[in-house]
Amino acid sequence: MTPQLTDKYMVTIAERLTSAYARIADAAKIAQRNTNEVTLLAVSKTKPSEDVIAAYEHGQREFGESYVQEAIDKIAQLQSYSDIIWHFIGPIQSNKSALVAANFDWVQSVDRIKIAKRLDSQRPDDKQPLNILIQVNISNEEAKSGCHRDEIDELADFINQCEHLTLRGLMAIPAKSNDLDTQIQSFEQLQTCFDKLKTQYPQVDTLSMGMSNDVEAAISAGSTMVRIGTDIFGTRT
């Protein structure tokens, strides 16, 4: 049964979503870019279906999830909202890859050939190819997922040859910093990798970087998709 909205959800999430879009527009203007060049991915992980509906009713269509079982339950509850585009943005465990392959439209966290191979073989034949972003560990943090920059070419070549996958670009989560120049420097390194990838694969068009704390730096450095959760849905539980 489709969850029902309450006035509380409609008001607060709608206002926050409006603010998020305004923030993107302001950052794009400062960077002398067109606002339409930047897509907002609303990160709804740990949030109930009612929150997703509230954002949907305000015009949001792209949502990001990180926890497989929670996301699968949410997708099932919201199956009547057929134009929602679901992105998986979390680490992928081998034993959960089939669920990711069957239920999502995008996967932003592919960082090794093993996972790409599983997603390709497990993507249902009756679905469109799965849109793939390669996750890059741009700050070389030991505890963070993502391939190294010198591994992008091999992984991109493999994905490009997969029948059920479409390579669309890169994603990264740089090391946290409150310094704008440091943020921009990290993002510009990924932008360089993205520009190179675009010359090799004409379908590549998505650079997913930037979250609630560094949207301005990401857009300044060329991001085409920012992932915002807390500023839309509030603190995660």
Rank of each mutant, 00 (worst) to 15 (best):
P3Q: 11
L5G: 01
T6F: 14
D7R: 12
Y9C: 10
A14K: 07
T18N: 00
S19Y: 13
S19I: 09
S19G: 10
A20V: 15
Y21S: 10
Y21F: 01
R23W: 02
R23T: 12
I30C: 11
A31Q: 11
Q32H: 06
Q32R: 06
R33M: 10
N34T: 11
N34G: 14
T35S: 12
T35F: 08
N36K: 13
E37Y: 15
T39C: 15
K45V: 10
K47A: 09
D51Y: 06
V52L: 05
I53H: 09
A54Y: 02
E57S: 12
E57D: 14
Q60R: 02
E62T: 01
F63M: 13
G64I: 07
E65K: 14
S66D: 08
Y67M: 06
Q69C: 11
Q69G: 10
E70D: 09
I72F: 13
I75R: 00
A76D: 12
L78D: 03
Q79A: 15
Q79I: 12
I84T: 05
I85G: 08
W86H: 08
H87K: 02
H87Y: 06
P91W: 03
I92V: 14
N95F: 07
L99C: 09
V100N: 04
A102W: 07
N103L: 04
F104L: 08
V107F: 02
V107I: 05
S109R: 03
S109L: 02
S109Q: 04
K114L: 05
A116M: 07
D120E: 07
S121P: 03
R123M: 06
D125Y: 06
D125S: 09
D125P: 01
D126M: 14
K127R: 15
L130P: 11
L133M: 10
V136Q: 02
V136N: 03
N137C: 07
S139P: 04
S139V: 05
N140F: 07
N140E: 14
N140L: 09
E141Y: 02
E141L: 05
E141H: 01
A143W: 14
A143Q: 13
K144H: 13
S145C: 02
C147Y: 01
H148A: 12
E151T: 05
E154A: 08
L155K: 11
A156P: 00
C162N: 04
L165Y: 00
L165D: 00
L167E: 01
G169E: 02
L170M: 02
M171E: 04
I173L: 08
A175T: 07
A175V: 10
K176A: 10
Q189S: 09
L190N: 06
L190D: 07
C193P: 10
K196A: 10
L197I: 04
L197P: 12
K198R: 11
T199D: 05
Q200T: 11
M211T: 03
N213G: 09
D214A: 12
A218Y: 03
I219R: 00
S220L: 08
T224K: 13
G229D: 04
T235Q: 03
T237W: 12
